[in-house]
Structures are given as structure tokens and as C-alpha cells.
Design a binder for these strands. Structure first.
Length: 337
DNA sequence: TACCAGGATGACT
DNA sequence: AGTCATCCTGGTA
């Protein structure tokens, strides 16, 4: 797919927030620590209105597909109950205003350094992830029924776009932007970058772009997983399974790496393109990528040493090589997409 | 210390 | 046979 969230690529590992979160947090903030029941997260506009809730903050969808279990730990620590993993937006703050409080609780402060997270904990987090992912997908489905539009933004007519805009504006109490996108089809919208959105609607363009990203991601995932019997295990696995394993073929390492690279939204923090055209990429977090690969192949003992050995096997085969100017953790696909 | 290069070997499909 | 995991030695930054 058109890699939703490409614009949300890594902002550097120094940030406490995962890259996928950065934009949304910046844009919208949310009610930290609020305890929500799952039932409350249904985007029933009527109920939401009556309750005075602007609606479910769908950007959690982004987060769920990250490997950032740290984030989930943070959220779940922040408030009890499953639904606490679903942030809920507050009315939009003034433009340029920074969120008063970052909802993220540093896991290290909780004595949960990323390297020490137990497998069991990860498993339960995955269960939480899968449940929340399911809820978010249901929410989008409900919205589609309400609006009578398809889940895939690429298929939207200009009328559908207007409906979606109205709905999103209403749900998230955004300034009206419908006129700005008049005559735009879903395809047009999908082709627009975050900057394009911002230029057209300075007040909430980035927010709209973020929400569109979520829809694109959901549509992409639905499409990829509607065929075949790929299991939905939740969170990151869901993404990874959604690709190569849908075909039933064992995944190759180079395919796996490419998949990660195609989802900067989710993995931009651990692997990213340096030059997509030339196929040059950098592994930003070698241990993380190795862990992902190990999990994917059910090899708990996988590490970057072994992974990199496998990458080097590709040298001879002409699949991956070191770029002309060799750099640490930087490789190049011989045949870029 | 982390990364890199590549040989050897065995498991698995 | 192909792919990959694993282990290894030795080199570099």
C-alpha cells in the first residue's frame, strides 16, 4: 500500500513517544489516565454526543501496530482496564499549543526496561493489542455503515470524501475543512502528504491526515487478510502475518526486511530507508529488528549477529549488498522496488 | 563493544 | 537443493 504514515517516519530514538504517536499526540493530545470501558469506545455518534465525548481516538490504531510494547505498558500502567489502551481525544487545543502532559509513562521509571520485558508480559500485551485492534476495526466498520462508504479511502468518490470529512470533523470537533477538499476523490486525498494537508487546512490538516492514515492502514490490512486464513494474533504480528504469511509461503529475511521498511509507520524507529529509490536502508535498532525476525520465525535465540549473517548470505545471491559507501547497519537492496 | 565478513555445519522444507 | 540458524575466527571502528 502507499505506506500510510510515511510522513510519520522516525523522529529519532531519543523521543519518548513512538514515531507513530508523535504526530497524533502533538495534534490532539488526549485524556491521560481516563478509565474507559470497551463499550464506551464504540463510535455511536448519538451516544457520543449525548455523553459529550468527541469520540474514539482512532489514532490508537497506529500505535497498536507498533512493536512498541513499551507504549502499551505505559498506557496500561496509566489506568486500569483494557480500554485504557484506547486514548480518547479531548477537544482540540489551540494551534501550536503543546500538550500539557504527555500521557506516556516511562517504562524505565516503572522498572520495566525494554530489554527486560518478559515474554509472558509481551504475550498478554499482544492479547490486549489484538482486542483493541479488533475494536478499532469494528469502529471503522461502523463508521462505514453510518456513512455508507467503503472502508478503503482509495475508492471514495468526492461525495464520500465529504462525508468522511464531515464525520471526522464532527467526531473530533475539528474546524470545517470540507470546502477545502471539494471535488477531491479519495485517491486524491491518499496521494496528499501531511504537508499538503497542513497547507490546505492549517488548523487541522495534520489531524485529518493522521485519521486518513488510520483508514488507509485498516483498508490495507483488510484487503491483505481477507484472502487466506492468516490468523489474527494481534498488534504487530497481525501486520507481519498479513504480508508474506498470507501466501502460506515461508517468509525470507529480505522480504521481512522489506515489509518492515514498507511500514515506517510501525517500524520506522528500528529500520528505515535512507534512500528508497536506491534501496538503501538502515537498521536503526539492530536488537529490535532481530527480535522481530526471531519472533516471526519462532526463533527466540535470534540476535543481530545471526540476522546479519543471513543478510550477508544475500551478498552472493545478489539480493542485498553493502552500499558503495559502506556504513554500519546500512544495507542496500540490489533490486530496489 | 558492536559491527562486519565469511567459512563451516546442521536442521528444515 | 535452497534457506536459514548457529557457531566460529578474525578484522575494524
Amino acid at each position: 500500500m502507499s505506506s500510510p504514515g510515511e510522513s510519520l517516519s522516525s523522529e529519532g530514538s531519543s523521543s519518548l513517544l513512538p514515531p507513530c504517536l508523535g504526530l497524533s499526540e502533538r495534534n490532539m493530545g488526549h485524556r491521560a489516565g481516563a478509565a474507559w470501558e470497551m463499550e464506551d469506545t464504540k463510535p455511536c455518534m448519538e451516544a457520543l454526543e449525548h455523553c459529550g465525548f468527541p469520540g474514539l481516538y482512532l489514532s490508537c490504531f497506529d500505535m497498536l501496530f507498533t512493536e512498541d510494547s513499551t507504549w502499551l505498558v505505559k498506557v496500561s500502567e496509566a489506568s486500569p482496564g483494557l480500554a485504557c489502551a484506547v486514548p480518547v481525544p479531548v477537544p482540540r487545543m489551540a494551534h501550536g499549543e503543546e500538550p500539557e502532559q504527555c500521557p506516556v509513562i516511562d517504562s524505565q521509571a516503572l522498572g520495566l526496561s525494554p530489554g527486560l520485558e518478559g515474554q509472558e508480559e509481551e504475550r498478554s500485551l499482544e492479547q490486549v493489542q489484538s482486542m483493541v485492534v479488533g475494536e478499532v476495526l469494528k469502529d471503522i466498520e461502523t463508521a462505514c455503515k453510518l456513512l455508507n462508504i467503503t472502508p478503503d479511502p482509495m475508492e471514495w468518490s468526492s461525495g464520500n470524501v465529504q462525508k468522511w470529512l464531515l464525520w471526522t470533523e464532527h467526531l473530533y470537533r475539528l474546524p470545517q475543512a470540507g470546502k477545502t477538499f471539494q471535488e477531491q476523490t479519495g485517491k486524491d486525498l491518499c496521494a496528499m502528504s501531511e504537508d499538503d494537508f497542513r497547507q490546505r487546512v492549517p488548523q487541522c490538516g495534520d489531524t485529518l491526515h493522521a485519521h486518513l492514515d488510520i483508514w488507509k492502514s485498516a483498508a490495507w490490512m483488510k484487503e491483505r487478510c481477507s484472502v487466506g486464513d492468516s490468523k489474527i494474533t494481534g498488534g504487530e504480528e497481525l501486520w507481519l502475518e498479513a504480508d508474506s504469511s498470507c501466501s502460506g509461503q515461508p517468509i525470507h529475511l529480505w522480504q521481512f526486511l522489506r515489509e518492515l521498511l514498507l511500514k515506517p509507520h510501525n517500524y520506522g524507529r528500528c529500520i528505515r530507508w535512507l534512500n528508497k529509490e536506491k534501496g538503501i536502508f538502515k537498521i536503526e535498532d539492530s536488537a529490535h529488528v532481530a527480535r522481530l525476525w526471531g519472533r516471526r520465525k519462532n526463533r527466540p535465540a535470534m540476535n543481530y549477529d545471526k540476522l546479519s549473517r543471513s543478510i550477508r548470505q544475500y551478498y552472493k545471491k545478489g539480493i542485498i549488498r553493502k552500499p558503495d559507501v559502506s556504513q554500519r547497519l546500512v544495507y542496500q537492496f540490489v533490486h530496489p522496488v
